[in-house]
Computed example of a mutant assay.
Amino acid sequence: MNLLTRRLPYSLLVLADVVVMVLLTLMSAMERTVFDLGAVSALVCALPVALRRVWPLPAYCGALLGGVLVLLLPVSRPATIAVAALTVYTVATTQPSRRSGTALVAGLLVIGGAQLVSVMGVPRRMDNWPDPIFIIGVTWLIIGASWSLGATARTRREFAAREARRQAEKAVVDERLRIVRELHDVVAHSLSVITVKAGVTAKVLDKHPEEGHKALRTIEEIGRGSLVEMRQFLGALRSPGSAPESTPLPGLADLPSLTHRAAEAGVQVDLSVSGTVPDSMGPAVYRIVQEAITNVVRHAAPAHCRAGVSVVDGRLTISVVDDGPGRRMLPGEPGGHGLTGMRERALMHGGDFEAGPLPGHGFRVHASWEVR
């Protein structure tokens, strides 16, 4: 299949054109037993086929000239029609639509005019051909069909090129959106924990210096780690191609440290992981759990929550449920991007996402998708 769909090298295509030229020359001069004017004419009329990829328009003009000379010279008409069809195909595949269309019309007029002149009495060979009007119709049909095939091929190539550019641009946009989501998660989680720890530090630093200094060291660690991640992501925004190599993404192994930081911010997390989660899905699972716990820290601390990741019967499920207040945004307050980011991560894997308050109190985040 690859041999059929892969484009041949340019040199092989030119060589194939030379072979076709030789075959057309032999077909046109097959009745000649010696190398005379007819054989030379046949070679000259077939020559545009060998040059059509190098000089498309001049080769096509040469083919039309051969179509006119064939009325005066002993050369096979089918060969000249084949030459015109092959050269107009190349013109249609290489030239803009307006230029190739003009070339087509000019060619049809030249061929038709030459046939009309032959009807009016220009000497021509009596080779038992059908009526000249029929010849004109068949010739126009062959040349027009060849031009249509070439124009279709050019249109398909242009569409494929546009689609490739669109896919490349989409890949860049998707990569930047991914990095923006990662930045949001890093900043939101880190600042939420830092804010809570800073508030605790301000209250206990005078009475419990050791606890205060411990909290300050935690803030320093979180800040340094977040700065490193942010620097890597911002570098990836400048050079998207380097993102996969320079940006280490967190996974399931980082969930325990996430729950530890949440505990220091006043949210006790009961974490459970069961089943085998593919490594490719680890970053999405981590970010969803991270954002869900960050929302608990930001809106419900001190609180308690249960975070579960499981794979059962080929379906991965993420659930984070807390016992804080169900309402997470004040009336009239614009919503954040956390829930949107979690939903986008689930949809990227073709999954489902739900988030909302529980009856009475508490908040639940649930995401699931098929493991491939």
Rank of each mutant, 00 (worst) to 15 (best):
W147S: 06
S100Y: 01
S239D: 14
R327N: 07
S272F: 02
I179H: 04
A367P: 01
R53W: 12
L12D: 00
M126W: 10
V289W: 13
R162D: 15
F353G: 02
G67N: 10
S274V: 14
L104N: 02
A85F: 08
P278K: 09
R157H: 12
L183W: 09
G324M: 04
A46W: 07
F363S: 05
L227W: 07
V54E: 02
G308S: 12
I135V: 08
A46M: 05
R165Y: 09
P74D: 13
A215Y: 11
V138W: 08
V119D: 08
P123T: 06
P256G: 01
T218Y: 03
R7H: 03
L64E: 07
A46Q: 04
Q268S: 09
L3G: 00
E210V: 10
V193L: 08
P209Y: 13
E370Q: 03
M281K: 00
P123I: 00
R261E: 15
V18W: 15
G121Y: 03
D127P: 00
S272Q: 10
F35S: 02
K197W: 14
H184D: 05
L86P: 01
H260Q: 10
A307H: 08
G341S: 07
G275A: 04
L191I: 09
R32K: 10
C61R: 02
A16I: 15
V371D: 05
D127Q: 02
A59G: 04
G335Y: 12
V187W: 05
V70E: 12
P359K: 06
E211S: 01
A153R: 11
R328M: 12
V49L: 06
G338N: 08
D322Q: 03
V193M: 06
M30A: 09
G360E: 13
W369Y: 08
V196R: 13
A106V: 15
A114Y: 11
T201S: 07
A92W: 15
G275D: 12
G324I: 11
A265C: 04
G107S: 02
R238W: 07
T80N: 05
T317W: 15
V122Q: 07
R287W: 11
V173H: 08
A284G: 04
A367I: 10
L216F: 05
V20G: 00
H366V: 11
T317Q: 11
L347D: 07
D127T: 06
A243F: 06
H361N: 07
V19I: 14
D174I: 08
V122E: 09
W147H: 11
G199E: 12
A16K: 13
A292E: 09
L8V: 06
V105D: 09
T195F: 07
K203E: 15
V277E: 03
